[in-house]
Structure formats: C-alpha cells, structure tokens
Design a protein around this nucleic acid. Structure first.
Length: 177
DNA sequence: GGCGTGACGGTTGAA
DNA sequence: GCTTCAACCGTCACG
C-alpha cells in the first residue's frame, strides 16, 4: 500500500493538464477539477463540502460533484468533525517559541491569582482573533473578508504586543484552565 | 463502489 | 537577502 507510482509523478514529469489561475499555476485532477498543488482549496469549496455533508450527501457524491478528490473530502470532513472549523491550518512557519516552560509557569501563576481578569482577557483575545468564526457553517463568509482578517491577523502577529503572542497559545491556555 | 489512509510533491513562513 | 526546516496542502492509489 501507499507506494509511489508513475501517476504520482504527474506534477513533476508532465501533469496531464495545467491551467493558469489568478493564484498561480493550477493543475487538473483526475475528476477534472482545478487545484493548486500545495495550496488549500478555496474557502467556498471547503464550505460546500461541509454543507453537502450536512445535508447527508455522501462523500463520493460530493467529491464527484465538486471535482475534489475523495481523499480531500475525507480529510476536510474529518477535520471539521474534530475542530469544528472548515478553515485550513496555518501553512508554513516554525512553531512558536513564545511559551517556554518559564512563560507557561508564569501564565499559570497569573491565572491562579487573577482568574477573573485572566478569563476576560482571553475572551477578548478570542473575540478579536476568531470573531464570528463559530458560525462559519451558517454564514457564507466572503473570501475578501477572510483575506482581510488574515491580513489583520498577520499584522497583529508581527507586532510585539502580548495579544500578538497569546492567540497562538489560547488552546493551551484553555486546556490548562 | 465507497471509504480511510499513507506516500508523495509542492507551498509557505518563521527562525 | 538567502537558506533551512517543519508545518500544512491536495492528489493518488492501495486495501
């Protein structure tokens, strides 16, 4: 199982078809769908996958209809079940080193001393970071909005404020609560 | 025929 | 500015 095959070399040695997209060099998969190797599927496609699955449509039908490989449909649905989010994970970069054991210890201490303030701070940060993301399966979010938010997020991350650091660690913080 | 899974080549961005 | 590295991506094919 899972051995390399000739067809797996498509991308390198002459994929059957290549198309140009605003995002760059697109390729065409076996189902005739266009994808960009290494890049996530557009948000509206991901949204549609989840939506169709919600309506009880089988993954194989979804993959055929949207022309996305069934492996991809499977992955996206798995991820959606696990995280509740249709958004792709953060691509690239290195793991944040902002939470050394020392930092963790101090956050823990601070949490004990100021539980109220700590919680409201986290809530504020979470609102700022995720906004209405919890409703994303109901709302058809504009890709422009997403892009804008990502840009803002990026700008915030590159800053040196505590809020540029903490959001990445919110999951850990919440786990320790 | 439908599905889960792992290898693969590719992209990305922090260090 | 360039390189390295580790994370993620979607496709493909096997079982």
């Amino acid at each position: 199982m899972m051995r390399p095959t000739l067809s797996q070399n498509y991308p390198r040695s002459g994929f059957p078809m290549e198309v140009s997209t605003p995002m760059g060099q697109g390729r065409v998969n076996q189902l005739g769908g266009v994808f960009i190797n290494g890049r996530p599927l557009p948000n509206h496609i991901r949204h549609k996958i989840v939506e169709m699955a919600h309506h009880g449509i089988r993954p194989c039908v979804i993959s055929r209809q949207l022309r996305v490989s069934h492996g991809c449909v499977s992955k996206i649905l798995c991820r959606y079940q696990e995280t509740g989010s249709i958004r792709p994970g953060a691509i690239g970069g290195s793991k944040s080193k902002t939470t050394s054991p020392d930092v963790e210890k101090r956050v823990e201490e601070y949490k004990r001393e100021n539980p109220g303030i700590f919680m409201s701070a986290i809530s504020r940060i979470m609102r700022g970071r995720y906004g209405a993301r919890g409703d994303e399966e109901e709302e058809d979010e504009d890709e422009e909005d997403i892009e804008k938010r990502e840009q803002e997020e990026h700008a915030r991350r590159s800053g040196h404020s505590i809020e540029g650091i903490l959001p990445d660690r919110c999951e850990w913080i919440l786990q320790t609560l």
